[in-house]
């Protein structure tokens, strides 16, 4: 039966090993993620928070921010509305999340709907500033902060990860998968002056 199992594809299968010398920024696609949006039902916010607290031992953010536990994260993307991401699990993640929070919240699977890119490097802020209209300065946008906004006309949610070992910044960007080619074109033209390296997909 192995033949019939569907395996996920990279959102950018045709990129190959693209590099522009300069070493300014890196970009990776987080691959094989379980992604779901979760929206509290009317008046169930408190109960939902309690359920999530018990199960994941974390507090759902009440603002644009990301919280993590183990391999799962929740990002506030609107009032009573979160983006849940699990490293691995694919669409099965949303099924288990739905089972956990029904009837307090609605869950929709987005594993094939969104793509998550991880970007970093010493010139990453200068690169992102060309497309994101928000202030990503370290004083304004701290590790764990998130924003649902646009990048070069493309709707996106961005959050700041912990800085890399060399002190360079790291962000993750979730956007609709069907727009990943547009994003890619914007990204490489914006990063060209600094140099970039496509690091392929990563299973985490």
């Amino acid at each position: 039966m192995a033949d019939t199992a569907l395996s996920g594809l990279s959102a950018l299968p045709h990129i190959g090993m693209q590099t522009q010398p300069g070493g300014g920024v890196t970009i990776t696609e987080r691959y094989g993620l379980g992604i779901a949006t979760m929206q509290a039902r009317q008046g169930q916010d408190v109960s939902l928070r309690e359920r999530i607290r018990q199960h994941f031992l974390l507090e759902l953010p009440g603002r644009p921010a990301i919280v993590r536990t183990g391999s799962v994260s929740f990002t506030g993307i609107g009032p009573h509305h979160w983006l849940a991401v699990s490293a691995g699990g694919g669409h099965l993640f949303s099924s288990s999340l739905r089972a956990l929070v029904t009837p307090l919240a609605s869950v929709s699977d987005q594993s094939g709907g969104y793509v998550v890119f991880r970007v970093g490097g010493r010139a990453i802020r200068d690169t992102l500033a060309k497309g994101f209209p928000i202030d990503l300065d370290p004083r304004a946008f701290k590790p764990g902060d998130a924003a649902t906004t646009i990048v070069s006309h493309i709707g996106a949610t961005i959050w700041r990860c912990d800085d890399g070992a060399d002190g360079s910044a790291c962000f993750e960007i979730a956007l609709f998968r069907s727009l990943s080619q547009s994003f890619w074109e914007w990204f490489v033209s914006s990063a060209a002056e600094f140099g970039y390296q496509w690091q392929g997909t990563t299973q985490q």
Binding site: I77, G78, P79, H81, T148, T149, I150, G155
Partner: peptide
């Protein structure tokens, strides 16, 4: 309208 955002 937060069109490219939470649609609130």
């Amino acid at each position: 309208y937060h069109a490219n955002g939470c649609r609130g």
